[in-house]
Design a binder for these strands. Structure first.
Length: 586
RNA sequence: GGGCUCGUGGCUUAGCCAGGAUAUAGCGCUGGCCUUCUAAGCCAGACGCCUCGGGUUCGAAUCCCGACGGGCCCGCCA
């Protein structure tokens, strides 16, 4: 419970009582954060006008005279039909600072819910390196998981590895049949195509994808290769463990490269679940049998099974959702049903972070789960794809920016920046800090935009270290650390009378908003609120820092240092929640 | 063709779901500030028919309908 919550509850009680006195008992009203300068909360009186048969301004005026400032309410005014309230700054300052001093980094950890929340994210096909077109997935998923943890949940993050199907079979064939020379030649051509002069990097995902590209080319032109791959596919479908194991092994090697990339942007997942597992354990089969019994089930002339979803809000010319091939084998979607059924047994809430191309598939999945009698549904979180100014990202057309290249570029840029301003720092330390800053710039740049909005990747934005950026937030943290370092020891002073400057009160109000921001970002999956909050907090601190003297402020020194420390504490947690490091100097 | 989604200063973006006061912030632009604790900073300024047209409402960027423009999807692929 934050100071603002208490404040709001008090307003609610007082306004309700006043309305009762005015003979309008039980009339509904809302309390909202005011947009007006110098006002904290407001009750718009327009909706009351009709029920009370009185002008909004008259209602506001009367309420204002009936409600006396007391408790947390320091001021009540009536302006333009709004009943405005101000929080008692003494109360706000004391309670906010005391709470941060007492709880430290766990200031905004909400009470335990006892709920197990599963966040599935990334889950890209293990057939090539992660490119920026898909970069939103791990960053959104990882940030959301960190928010949900702070919302009191037990969180598990999970990657669903697609080690079934033609793509991974082609990859496997390539890994086992394409020579290193062929791969090297292809790699060279590819790098030329995407406009880079360097050699393709020595990393398993980049090495394997060259063989995948060669395999795909051969598949198009060489009938012998077509036959070999078809044979592998056939054996795979029949459950031939030799083929299945080989494919899985290949996917594992590819995944090692992907994990390395993810690790570099501070994303690590708790669990990797293999699609092939749902064939092996028979659970996909069981889904097929259950669905066949449903009243919505049917069969095509060729014998493929489907459920008709036209009663489930699925629109269009074809409402049939196919769950077996005509030969009876399962499809991706069938295995996905088994996968979700499995997730439900080990989670109370299941969240899927998905590209917007999965919207229809996700809806079909939900409908099929309903048919299966599932009492739970996954909550999808969709994001629009990242494109380049020249258009949609496509490895084949050579229009692609790899995540690994973006990371290198951002780190190099951060290194130049730090080198130009810190001659005193040892080389190794500069390298370490550059990495932390570069990665923060990337993550911040991606989470700051609402997931459903299209995102055009621009190098100048990704490498922007000013203003609304990751490094801006980190810079403020470093400033606070530096100030505290210079200060040495001091005594916590949360005496509200010591904070008289507008910039101080504003900063404390911003600190008080952190808990609510975490709740919105986590429970309501609005993670883009978090970078906006981080910027607001950092900006408030910079204003405070520029306006008042801290170390030479005599009897206010301890109080101001306490505020610096509290800000540092909250900033460190916001940065962590965003998956960004909090360097103590930069 | 059908469905889903986005459209806010030159560019990027918050607010929209739960309609209210002067539409949020950043980049870029113009001007000022390092003899004070990190100038990746601070201060001041210019820049908006909130895509367009209707409707609902005391009140619409926000809700409804329609148009236009961008994106995504409509496999016995994964």
């Amino acid at each position: 419970m934050t100071a603002m919550d208490d404040f709001q509850n008090e307003i609610r009680a007082k306004v309700s009582a006043a309305l009762k006195d005015m003979g309008a008992d039980g009339t509904g009203f809302v309390i909202e954060a005011s947009t007006m300068e110098g006002v904290d909360m407001a009750v718009p009186c327009f909706p009351l006008a009709k029920a009370m048969r009185k002008a909004p301004q008259a209602i506001a005026d009367e309420l204002a005279t009936r409600i006396q400032p007391s408790g947390m309410i320091s001021k009540v005014t009536s302006v333009n039909g709004f009943l405005n309230f101000n929080i008692d700054p003494e109360f706000l300052i004391k309670s906010t600072l005391d709470e941060i001093v007492e709880k430290g980094g766990e200031f905004a950890y909400l009470p335990k819910t006892g709920k197990r929340v599963n966040v599935e994210h990334t889950s890209t096909n293990p057939t090539g390196p992660i490119h920026v077109g898909r970069a939103r997935n791990p960053i959104i998923g990882d940030t959301l998981a960190r928010c949900l943890l702070r919302c009191g949940n037990e969180v598990t993050t999970e990657y669903y590895v697609n080690d079934v199907g033609k793509q991974v079979v082609v990859l496997t064939w390539g890994v086992n049949n394409v020579t290193d020379e062929e791969a090297a030649k292809n790699s060279e051509e590819h790098m030329k195509e995407i406009g880079q002069n360097e050699k393709e990097r020595d990393k398993t995902d980049h090495k394997l994808v060259a063989k995948y590209r060669v395999a795909n080319k051969k598949l198009e032109t060489d009938p012998a290769v077509q036959t070999e791959i078809s044979e592998m596919m056939r054996r795979f479908e029949q459950g031939d463990s030799e083929v299945i194991d080989t494919v899985r092994h290949t996917a594992e090697i590819m995944l090692d490269g992907l994990k390395e990339t993810l690790g570099n942007i501070n994303v690590s997942l708790d669990r990797y679940t293999w699609e092939s597992g749902y064939i092996a354990d028979g659970s996909a089969r069981a889904i097929v049998e259950d669905l066949k019994k449903s009243e919505y089930a049917g069969q095509t002339d060729d014998g493929a099974w489907f459920v008709d979803l036209k009663d489930f809000g699925v629109q269009g010319k074809n409402t049939k959702f196919t769950f077996t091939r005509s030969d009876g084998t399962t499809l991706y979607t069938t295995r996905d049903l088994a996968y979700h059924t499995d997730k439900f047994t080990r989670s109370d809430r299941v969240i899927d972070v998905l590209g917007e191309d999965q919207k229809l598939g996700s809806k079909q999945l939900c409908s099929a789960l309903e048919i299966l009698g599932s009492d739970k549904q996954p909550e999808p979180l969709f994001y629009a794809f990242v494109s380049l100014p020249e258009g949609k990202m496509s490895t084949r057309r050579g229009v692609v920016v790899y995540m690994d290249d973006l990371i290198d570029e951002a780190v190099a840029r951060a290194y130049d920046e730090i080198k130009s301003r810190r001659q005193d720092m040892p080389e190794e330390k500069m390298r370490d800090i550059a990495k932390v800053i570069g990665v923060a710039a990337i993550r911040f740049n991606i989470v700051r935009v609402q997931p459903e909005k299209q995102f055009v990747f621009k190098w100048e934005d990704a490498l922007n270290f000013d203003g609304n950026s990751g490094p801006y937030i980190q810079y403020v943290h470093a400033r606070a650390c530096s100030t505290l370092r210079k200060a040495g020891t001091f005594k916590h002073d949360t005496d509200a009378s010591k904070f008289r400057e507008e910039c101080e009160i504003n900063l404390i109000k911003t600190l008080a908003k952190y808990e609510e921001t975490i709740r919105l970002a986590g429970d309501e999956k609005r993670i883009h609120m978090l970078p906006a909050y981080a910027h607001e907090l950092a900006s408030s601190f910079n204003q405070f820092y520029a306006n008042v003297s801290i170390l030479n402020s005599e009897d206010l020194r301890d109080a101001r240092l306490t505020l610096v420390e509290c800000t540092k504490t909250v900033l460190a947690d916001v940065l962590d929640c965003l998956g960004m490091g909090a360097p103590e100097e930069m």
